[in-house]
Nucleic acid binder design. Structure first.
Lengths: 189, 189
DNA sequence: ACCTTCGTAAACCGATCGGTTTTCTTTTCG
DNA sequence: CGAAAAGAAAACCGATCGGTTTACGAAGGT
């Protein structure tokens, strides 16, 4: 039983917004968004309050895909250390793709420069969730300072995806040893 | 003897471009730039080819201030380890300022999303210079893998300033132990 | 004093911005 | 089938974009 093959205008708009905003930035015009989604501007403004609202909603929807792609399954048999390393393996994997441009949640916040923008707040929450995941695993794994380790891992996550996104580093042979060093220093087996 | 107290239109434009672009993003209009600089659009386009050219030139000029602020003096008596730590102390210091928005060179590259843009290329070079500084100090300090260490430190630099810039972390108690851990792991005394 | 140079202010250009409205076609459902 | 709702296409709105041009005032050197 397949899920609907046909996407609703709403779904097409959300997908187009996520894709084009990621590629071209939040400055992308609504005209281009509508064209890519095959949806009229009229429909857009019936479904969403504004372009900002659409952007926030598209980030919100992508959040689930974001965690599904990066995070390990809820209770696989692996150790917290392995589960943390899994996240960074995924990052390195994604960074290999030619269209990779870094973490979209970080990019949106940097581009908007307005913490009160609805899309910025969604991005802030998503990033907070990732840090919370790291902290939870750190506690589970008996890290000496779970909070510090979670912040360090988040820092590496953002630094790595940002530098890969701007072409400053290709990450090969970089993330794994860095994360391992931090985990070791936190006495996390 | 003081340098000219009066700034030329060129200098005022470069400063306004750096300041306003950092605060509002590269999407800032030329009208606003001219107004802030107290310079007419006519003069702008006599002094610079285009807005993109002005942006690139302003980043170029700020590059020297960037290194002067962050990097230690050429041959102070300190050890490479201390000289590296000095950079991160400066970052943590800057991040405390309320108007801090992260590294402007990273922000410009993320906002432009175009590696061939003249301003992106300036930013790329500046970032490369910082990595080169780290590598040079790492070699001087006898790090086991100077190239790896330099990439790790650049990653921490960008991750830290980005996360501080978007308000995801205030960096207190984070950078120093992280950098120390990486230096230790590289056997750099 | 004169003329040239430099620079500001402001009008102007076509294009595009986010957003609204009108018109016409397609779909849906009783 | 026929009415009603949905949606696409496109004209339209005022504002603003990057960039050009015109017109006029304030210097500067001789």
């Amino acid at each position: 039983m397949a899920t609907e093959v046909k996407q609703s205008p709403r779904e097409r708009l959300l997908e187009a917004a996520a894709t084009l905003t990621y590629r071209d930035g939040v400055g992308i015009g609504v005209e281009a968004l509508c064209k890519a989604a095959g949806v009229s501007k009229r429909s857009l403004y019936q479904l969403f309050e504004s372009k900002d609202d659409l952007l926030a909603a598209s980030l919100e929807q992508r959040a689930s895909a974001f965690v599904v792609t990066l995070l390990p399954a809820a209770n696989d048999g692996r150790s917290p250390r392995e589960r943390i390393l899994h996240v960074f393996e995924q990052v390195e994997l994604q960074a290999g793709a030619p269209e990779f441009r870094g973490c979209q949640y970080l990019a949106v916040q940097i581009e908007l420069k307005d913490q009160s923008h609805p899309a910025s707040q969604v991005a802030h929450r998503v990033k907070g969730n990732l840090t919370a995941f790291f902290r939870s695993e750190a506690e589970q794994g008996g890290a000496s300072d779970p909070d510090l380790l979670a912040r360090q891992l988040s820092l590496v996550f953002d630094g790595a995806s940002a530098r890969a996104g701007i072409g400053a580093d290709n990450l090969t042979g970089l993330i794994a040893p860095t994360v391992a060093t931090l985990l070791d220093a936190a006495d996390m087996p």
